[in-house]
Simulated assay, not measured.
Amino acid sequence: MTRRAALAASSVLAGLLVTTALTGAPAAHAAKGMEPKAPKEFVALSDADPTILQEIRYFTPHNFVGEPVDGYRQPMCLVTKDTAKALHRAQKSFLKRGYTLKVYDCYRPQRAVDHFVRWAKDLQDERMKAEFYPRVEKNRLFEDGYIAEKSGHSRGSTVDLTIVKLPAQPTRPYVPGEPLTDCAAPKSERFPDNSVDTGTGFDCFDTLSHTEDPRIQGEQRANRHLLKTTLDKAGFKNLPEEWWHYTLKKETFPDTYFDFPVSRRSLPR
Rank of each mutant, 00 (worst) to 15 (best):
L161A: 02
F253L: 05
T181W: 02
E143T: 13
K138Y: 08
W243I: 05
H115D: 15
D122V: 12
A185P: 08
R172A: 10
A120I: 03
N238T: 07
D193Q: 09
F236E: 01
E189P: 01
D144G: 05
C183S: 10
W119T: 10
K138N: 10
D193S: 14
L239Q: 12
R118N: 11
K150I: 04
G199P: 00
G156A: 10
D255Y: 12
G177M: 12
K121G: 04
D125G: 13
K228L: 13
A168G: 08
A185V: 08
K165P: 06
P214I: 09
L180V: 12
T162N: 07
F205I: 10
S157D: 15
A168F: 09
R224L: 06
S154C: 12
A130I: 09
I163C: 04
D125A: 11
A184P: 01
D206S: 15
D125S: 13
D206R: 11
K129R: 15
T211F: 02
Q220R: 15
Q169W: 06
T158H: 03
M128S: 07
E242L: 13
D203Y: 12
P173W: 09
P192M: 08
V117K: 05
L208P: 01
L248S: 01
H153M: 04
I216W: 04
L227P: 09
A222K: 14
S154P: 04
V117S: 02
A148N: 14
T200E: 02
D193A: 12
Y174V: 06
T162M: 01
D232K: 13
D182W: 09
I147D: 03
R224H: 09
F253T: 02
G218T: 04
T229D: 12
A130S: 14
S154H: 07
T158C: 03
F205T: 01
Q217G: 07
T207Y: 11
